[in-house]
Nucleic acid binder design. Structure first.
Length: 566
RNA sequence: CGGGGCGUGGCGCAGCUUGGUAGCGCGCCUGCUUUGGGAGCAGGAGGUCCCCGGUUCAAAUCCGGGCGCCCCGACCA
């Protein structure tokens, strides 16, 4: 019997001073997690129960699509990471064994799993295969934050698909995606699937599963027409600029002494910020090629989109490089007459009467029309903004969300360097086509706290609550109360519910407060008052609605109520 | 990596400016009373004041160095 009097659930009246995020505060206060170091968290019994419930759901859904559970080590020889070129990643923990051999702590398991498949899969007959595990990941995060949301060590469900060709990958990817939808639905989260950047994973396509919440680290662009994308990759049509200056037959210089920023120039010339052309000196790729990137003055550059458009790494030019490579004083850089290549953002198409830097101190040009005045390359590399229009014409809004899962089409990013190949029907050697699919149970847990908490504490979705119901017995030493509580406990257990029994010698207020903090979906209160009427009181945690229940047949009634909860 | 903040009993904090007995609330232990919304009374336990060094008769307090943690940004499957 799980009695609170001997269960390790150290609750706190006040949140730790350094906790900011709601999930951070509540998980600590409710006695579910404790911090061991920056980004290093221990799950106490109640918190671990939630984690395990989430794992169970993941396991069922992975098994249901034919994925096979296994386990690979966290500590790995560096060799495999050198082969895939990921040994240089800053977030990768590196160490040496006693012989001085370079080792790493895995941040994900593509190298390990792909190596095994490379060794043991030889024939098209062995494919496709989908493997998964729950395993610790280690990442030397530059900044762990928000309690359990961004940590240096965490458990991930990571799955990997191995197919013989792109069609196979597409099918595996679709199966995983559908499983993910069922998983987040079952966990009771509010969630959506968005297009995402492939990032350091490499590969040809990716989606993220996002749970909207205040503590979210990602910004997601959404529209009522169903558009959903991480702002890192989101594309939209810009809202037009009102009151553009008159177009001119040709660009004309204008004195703008000391006006180096968009705001200064806009104020000095009395034109909207969007009438300016923002010229951003960038340096592209290994070869350090200078490139002048042009944006509407009120827009901002999205380095990820730019990198993806160029297919190369980019960075902003340093102050001294601007003079040397872009031939202009800082603050007056512009496209016309620029020695560097020019790449204009699509939002500038068709605009005339624009203001741009003149590549001369204290001077700008009026009446610039990019398509008329120079031949630039064009691409979409601006960050979308609230009020833009999605492809279906609906207005874009942006909200914070936490990434709870992601799926990647890896292609041959790992199979090629690790030699994961097979022989096809014709005896020809082919490279395996891969996908990878990750979910962080801790993030599901934290997102659920964030999404459903109220002033009193956590309100767990039914499927992942540490316990289904908490019985609160009132009245110290009242044997009848204790007996009724005990009986109810056993009856509910027999019906398959997880029950927590608060049998402590604490005041009613304290017990109620702790129960609401922990957030089990139901609370059954048994006290003298109710007993005399032959009743107990049932509280639904979400909404705190209370009702009286006849003691006779209470367990069955409670089960039915529980089944009807979200 | 840049900016800011914090480190004093389990939690939240005061004390530091102006050096001299380490304090408050909550929690914890014991006893009695109390039991439908964080109870009352009485008694009690618990602190290398983050660490190292310096100044001083004397350092939580002043000085130097280090470490840890949090927040913002950069970064980030």
């Amino acid at each position: 019997m799980t009695r609170l009097s001997d269960y390790f659930l150290p609750t706190l009246k006040d949140p730790p001073a350094d906790a900011e995020a709601i999930s951070h505060q509540l998980l600590v206060r409710a006695g579910m997690v404790r911090q061991l170091g920056a980004g290093l968290w221990t799950y106490l019994p109640a918190g671990w129960r939630v984690h395990r419930k989430i794992e169970a759901i993941l396991r069922e859904e992975m098994d249901a699509i034919g994925a096979q559970e296994m386990l690979a080590p966290v500590l790995q020889p560096a060799e495999h990471w050198e082969k895939t070129g990921r040994y240089a990643i800053d977030e990768l923990f590196k160490l040496e064994d006693r012989r001085g051999a370079p080792m790493v702590l895995a941040m994900t398991h593509e190298e390990a799993l792909t190596s095994h498949v490379a060794r043991d899969v030889r024939s098209y007959r062995d494919l496709p295969v989908m493997l998964y595990q729950f395993q610790v990941k280690e990442r030397d995060e530059p900044r762990p934050r928000a309690g359990v949301l961004r940590t240096r060590e965490f458990i991930m469900k990571d799955a990997y698909s191995f197919d013989r060709d792109q069609d196979g990958l597409e099918a595996s990817y679709a199966r995983q995606s559908e499983a993910y939808e069922r998983i987040f639905e079952r966990c009771g989260l509010e969630w959506y699937r968005v297009e995402s950047d492939v990032g350091m994973m490499g590969g040809s396509g990716a989606h993220e599963f996002m749970a909207p919440c205040a503590a979210g680290e990602n910004d997601v662009a959404l529209s009522d027409a169903g558009y959903a994308a991480n702002v890192e990759v989101a594309c939209a049509t810009a809202s037009p600029i009102e009151e553009l200056p008159e177009p001119l037959a040709a660009p004309e210089p204008v004195a703008t002494p000391g006006a180096r920023s968009i705001d200064e120039v806009s104020a000095l010339l009395d034109v909207p910020r969007g009438a300016l052309i923002k010229s951003m000196p960038m340096i592209v790729g290994e070869e350090e090629r200078p490139l002048l990137c042009l944006l509407r003055g009120d827009h901002s550059l999205n380095e990820i989109k730019l990198r993806n458009a160029l297919g190369a790494a980019v960075r902003q030019a340093r102050q001294e490089e601007i003079g040397e490579r872009f031939g202009s004083p800082v603050g007056f850089v512009g496209p016309i007459g620029s020695p560097a290549g020019v790449l204009a953002d699509e939002a500038l198409r068709g605009m005339s009467g624009m203001v741009a830097g003149a590549n001369r101190a204290d001077t700008h040009l009026l009446g610039v029309d990019l398509e008329r005045d120079l031949s630039a390359d064009w691409a979409d590399f601006r960050t979308v903004e609230v009020g833009d229009c999605c492809p279906a014409g609906a207005e874009i809004r942006i909200e914070p969300a936490i990434e709870v899962g992601n799926i990647f089409k890896l292609g041959t990013r790992y199979s090629k360097p690790l030699g994961a190949t097979f022989l096809d029907e014709d005896g020809a050697e082919q490279t395996i086509v891969m996908g990878s699919y990750g979910i962080g149970p801790a993030r599901i847990l934290a997102a659920a706290v964030e999404q459903f908490a109220d002033d009193a504490g956590i309100c767990w979705p039914r499927a992942i609550a540490p316990f289904d119901i908490e019985i609160v017995a009132l009245g110290k030493g009242d044997e009848e109360v204790a007996k009724v509580a005990n009986d109810l406990y056993e009856d509910l257990r027999a019906l398959g519910l997880d029950v927590l029994y608060d049998d402590r010698e604490a005041s009613p207020g304290q017990k109620f407060a702790d129960a609401e903090l922990l957030g089990c979906p139901l609370r059954a209160t048994i006290g003298r008052r109710g007993l005399e009427a032959g009743e107990l009181e049932l509280q639904v945690r979400r909404g705190l609605e209370q009702s009286a229940l006849a003691l006779d047949g209470a367990a069955q009634e409670i089960l039915e109520r529980w089944q009807s909860l979200a």
